[in-house]
């Protein structure tokens, strides 16, 4: 199935991805020129606030964007093949088999009227050509793998009989059933309690090292990213504004938005009387500002009175080997 020319260790290579929604009110540029690469076995964090386009990016990878949305430009190379050029039948072989996804809300994502074992078996029958008995046995093994106690009995449970943490484990089991090379986890722990979140994060880390799959971890929680990810992209208004290795990003955040995000969360071992909040709200997604999309909320832009920010959009520049940023402050590095 692999492209014979596929040699390097980039599992996924997204280039200039643009997904627009053509609504009656106007065109929403939900994802507007996103580039990133995910390496084999890597945990790649995609961070941003609601509406920044991180979920639409992941749906675009799986070609699950529904009208009025459409991928209008770009390429998504998975193991060297452009997913956007596959036929629907070929795409079905990728979806759930090579790339699978888990969602924020486990319960609405599971079929409420079928036992969870049955839902794992379904994927195995479609993709792995197992018979019913083998598939059930494998399903129970998977439930064991994700840490569901008493798995053989639990495989007959319906989703409503599971707690939030257990349902999330069951969904991970379904996602893992075909041993995908890439798992997209869209806010996998946001709906869970802190102690359960810790369990699920540890499970994901453990599965990554045991199965060697790559994970795209989509989250708004910088703490989760710092803990899990190897490489991070920060998104704002449909664009990647900063991309770096996790250490580089947290040691030396360059973009004013990233800095603002890091400073605005209360941290246990620090005492700050006031939080450094980012002023204003995320810009209107139909009438975006002309220049840098963050400029109206940017303290640096206002302090230094940089007129260029409101006129032209900066490029994503490589400032140091492990660090890219989209901001006029760093534009001198390119010359």
């Amino acid at each position: 199935m692999n492209d014979p020319n596929f040699q390097n260790d980039d599992l996924l290579d997204i280039h200039n991805l643009k997904t627009y929604f053509f609504t009656r009110e106007g065109v929403v540029r939900a994802v507007d020129g996103v580039d990133f690469k995910v390496k084999v076995g890597e945990i790649f964090g995609l961070v941003g606030e609601s509406g920044c386009g991180k979920s639409v990016t992941s749906l675009s990878i799986l070609r699950l964007v529904n009208p009025p949305g459409r991928v209008v430009d770009g390429s998504i190379l998975f193991q060297g093949r452009n997913l956007l050029e596959l036929t629907d039948a070929e795409m079905r072989q990728v979806r759930g088999n090579r790339i699978s996804m888990i969602f924020q809300q486990p319960l609405p994502s599971l079929d409420p009227i079928r036992p969870i074992g049955d839902q794992i078996v379904e994927a195995l029958l479609v993709h792995k050509k197992m018979d019913q008995r083998q598939a059930w046995k494998h399903a129970v093994d998977l439930l064991n793998l994700v840490g569901i106690p008493d798995a053989s009995r639990r495989s007959h449970s319906y989703p409503f009989e599971l707690s939030g943490g257990m349902a999330q484990r069951a969904m991970i089991a379904i996602a893992l059933s075909c041993e995908p090379e890439l798992l997209i986890a869209d806010e996998p722990t946001t709906a869970l309690d802190v102690t359960i979140q810790a369990q699920i994060l540890e499970l994901l880390c453990d599965l990554r090292s045991r199965l060697g799959m790559a994970i795209i971890l989509i989250t708004h929680d910088l703490g989760v990213v710092a803990e899990m990810a190897d490489w991070v992209s920060v998104m704002y208004a449909g664009r990647v504004v900063e991309e770096a290795s996790v250490n580089s990003l947290f040691e030396e955040p360059l973009h004013p938005y990233t800095r603002g995000l890091i400073e605005s969360i209360p941290v246990l071992d620090q005492d700050r009387k006031r939080l450094n909040a980012i002023p204003g709200v995320v810009c209107d997604c139909i009438n975006m500002p002309a220049g840098c999309k963050f400029a109206p909320r940017c303290k640096v832009q206002i302090e230094k009175n940089m007129t260029i920010c409101n006129k032209h959009e900066p490029h994503l520049l490589e400032v140091s080997p492990n660090h890219k940023v989209r901001c006029w402050l760093y534009e001198e590095f390119s010359h």
Binding site: L201, G223, V225, A226, L268
Partner: peptide, 14 residues
């Protein structure tokens, strides 16, 4: 356990 479960925005500490 609650204290230690909180993901900390500092990759070295975590």
């Amino acid at each position: 356990a609650l204290m230690s479960a909180i993901p900390h925005p500092n990759p070295h500490r975590n």
